[in-house]
Design a protein around this nucleic acid. Sequence first.
DNA 1: CCGTATCCAATAAGATACTG
DNA 2: CAGTATCTTATTGGATACGG
Lengths: 224, 224
Amino acid sequence: MQLGNVTKRSKTETKRTYDDACGLAHALDLVGERWAMLILRELAYGGRRFSGLRKDLPGISANVLTQRLAELEERGLVRKSRLPPPASVQVYEATDWALEVTPLIGRLGKWAARSPRHDPTLPLSHASIMMSMQVMIDPERAGDLSGRFGFRFGEVSYVAELSDGEIAVERGPLINCDVRFSGTPEEVAGVIYGGAPLDTLHPEGDLELAGRYVAIFPLPEKAA
Amino acid sequence: MQLGNVTKRSKTETKRTYDDACGLAHALDLVGERWAMLILRELAYGGRRFSGLRKDLPGISANVLTQRLAELEERGLVRKSRLPPPASVQVYEATDWALEVTPLIGRLGKWAARSPRHDPTLPLSHASIMMSMQVMIDPERAGDLSGRFGFRFGEVSYVAELSDGEIAVERGPLINCDVRFSGTPEEVAGVIYGGAPLDTLHPEGDLELAGRYVAIFPLPEKAA
DNA sequence: CCGTATCCAATAAGATACTG
DNA sequence: CAGTATCTTATTGGATACGG
């Protein structure tokens, strides 16, 4: 039997690799397996628990999530860590190196959103919609608009800090925000991309600023 | 049986899709399957024949290549086309939309080349090394260096046009080149990344320019 | 030579039940 | 909650045979 590009790694684990020095091939060896990039997307703004990942990755099964996390950890992209007491729960977090690839996966997403087949009515995770804002913002429309915009999705909240036509995102409490929105990720998408009324997101704070913020995200024109 | 995210597309073909509105998930539905991005890499600089693709994708089998090309065509990323006579052969080429994703693919490769596991001694295709130059160039080192640099890999040749710290690549005859190199893709990598002697590539033309060109590609520093 | 189609073996992914 | 274990299904790869 010829092994070809099947590399034996241990008695029980084998792995298909591309025998190719091209960096892209290696990228796919690292994060090209099913679910891997979506896991990194979910880890882009901080550590997450197993169950949270499972909830926000529609359709992943526990064994596959376990396996992906173990592989990503072995490859130096994910690290297990324990939150300080009183939480003391274990979370998975992306390493610095893995965080460098998240802007690229965001741009992959922007590219694909132009597909005629893209269905924006499917469910959306909170990490997805935050990353979407970072990548879809039109710096021209944003102009010199700036501020701190809070988003509350149930238990989880994020702050998007806008300045110079760019958005920095962090997960965490809504402190010092000029505007606070709340709703589901899908509702946020409906307002910023679908023209749904601003009230959907129950804005609090500077409502005029809120209205200007939600208008800086153009819908991508479909490709072919 | 529950179908979950397995979508029936026809009697014989089923397809796993991510039920996720995130653009990234859709990107992976489009080009996330094994070999798909590598095929787009090979098509980045012009149409290729089936056998050429097969040769430059080490380990792909004919049936998988056939299937990927058919899927990519159906999704609007690849088109079959016939070269004008007297060649009259059929080639597969990337659509304009697909060509927009190739720079992202290149940057994914650049990111992954920083992996400690990356093995640069594996085989390399001519498209890979050309894309690698586009993405690995250091604009600082390049300064205001400019020129047309030809690369001959056996039957196939490319021109890399350098100006303003950027490289435009096209496949085709070596006309109007300031320098012409020839060798294998691996030899080119050895010279520009591994510090192998310039002579390896049998440079012709402006040899001083040749020496300056091969010095503008820094080796990526390893992450972790 | 340029692909396609078919068959088979090996992996990877998914569903579900179950344990600490 | 955080995973394992087990079983089933789907995809991939390799060989080979076939049609233009």
